[in-house]
Measured scan of single mutants.
Amino acid sequence: TTYKLIANGKTLKGETTTEAVDAETAERVFKEYAKKNGVDGEWTYDDATKTFTVTE
């Protein structure tokens, strides 16, 4: 399944996707990606669109 991340960070803005077996796995991947890019904010997830959003 393809999951999408929308990053609304102070230093990183944009979108990326990952293939994962479930939302929990995708969330781990995206949180690691955000951490590597210095983004720390509020996370939301929309199951209907398989989209995570992080906003600083």
Rank of each mutant, 00 (worst) to 15 (best):
T1C: 13
T1P: 09
T1A: 12
T1I: 13
T2G: 04
T2E: 08
T2M: 13
T2V: 14
Y3R: 02
Y3T: 02
Y3V: 02
Y3G: 02
Y3N: 02
Y3M: 01
K4P: 02
K4F: 14
L5H: 01
L5P: 02
L5E: 01
L5T: 01
L5K: 01
L5Q: 01
I6A: 05
I6Q: 06
A7D: 04
A7I: 15
A7F: 15
A7C: 15
A7K: 04
A7N: 05
A7R: 04
N8D: 09
N8M: 14
G9N: 06
G9Q: 05
G9Y: 06
G9A: 13
G9C: 15
K10R: 13
K10Y: 10
K10A: 12
K10Q: 11
T11A: 10
T11Q: 10
T11V: 11
L12D: 05
L12F: 15
L12S: 07
L12Y: 15
K13A: 10
K13F: 11
G14S: 13
G14D: 08
E15V: 15
E15N: 07
E15G: 07
E15M: 13
E15K: 07
T16I: 15
T16G: 04
T16D: 04
T16S: 10
T17I: 10
T17S: 11
T17E: 08
T18K: 04
T18R: 05
T18G: 03
T18Q: 05
E19T: 14
E19N: 12
E19D: 09
E19V: 15
A20V: 04
A20G: 03
A20M: 03
A20Y: 02
A20I: 02
A20T: 05
V21K: 13
V21N: 11
V21H: 12
V21A: 14
D22A: 03
D22I: 03
A23F: 14
E24Y: 10
E24G: 09
E24K: 13
T25I: 07
T25G: 08
A26T: 00
A26D: 00
A26V: 02
A26W: 01
A26Q: 01
E27F: 15
E27L: 15
E27N: 05
E27C: 14
E27A: 11
R28Q: 11
R28M: 10
R28I: 10
V29C: 09
V29I: 15
V29E: 07
V29Y: 15
F30Q: 00
F30R: 00
F30S: 00
K31A: 04
K31C: 05
K31W: 05
K31N: 04
E32C: 09
E32G: 05
E32T: 07
Y33K: 03
Y33C: 07
Y33G: 02
Y33S: 02
A34H: 02
A34K: 01
A34G: 03
K35I: 10
K35P: 01
K35M: 12
K35G: 06
K36E: 12
K36T: 09
K36M: 12
N37P: 01
N37A: 12
N37L: 15
N37D: 03
N37K: 10
G38F: 06
G38A: 06
G38Q: 06
G38L: 06
V39Q: 05
V39E: 03
V39D: 02
V39Y: 09
D40R: 11
D40A: 11
D40N: 12
D40E: 14
G41R: 01
G41S: 02
E42S: 10
E42N: 10
E42W: 11
W43E: 00
W43C: 00
T44C: 08
T44H: 12
T44A: 10
T44F: 11
T44V: 09
Y45M: 01
Y45R: 01
Y45N: 00
Y45G: 00
Y45W: 03
Y45P: 00
Y45I: 01
Y45S: 00
D46H: 06
D46G: 01
D47S: 11
D47Y: 08
D47P: 14
D47H: 09
D47F: 07
D47I: 09
A48N: 11
A48M: 11
A48V: 12
A48F: 11
A48L: 12
A48E: 13
T49Q: 06
T49V: 06
T49A: 06
T49D: 04
T49G: 04
T49E: 05
K50H: 11
K50E: 03
K50M: 06
K50C: 05
K50Q: 09
K50Y: 07
T51S: 05
T51H: 02
T51K: 03
T51I: 06
F52E: 00
F52L: 01
F52I: 01
F52H: 01
T53P: 00
T53Y: 14
V54G: 00
T55A: 06
T55I: 09
T55E: 07
T55Q: 09
E56L: 08
E56M: 08
E56Q: 10
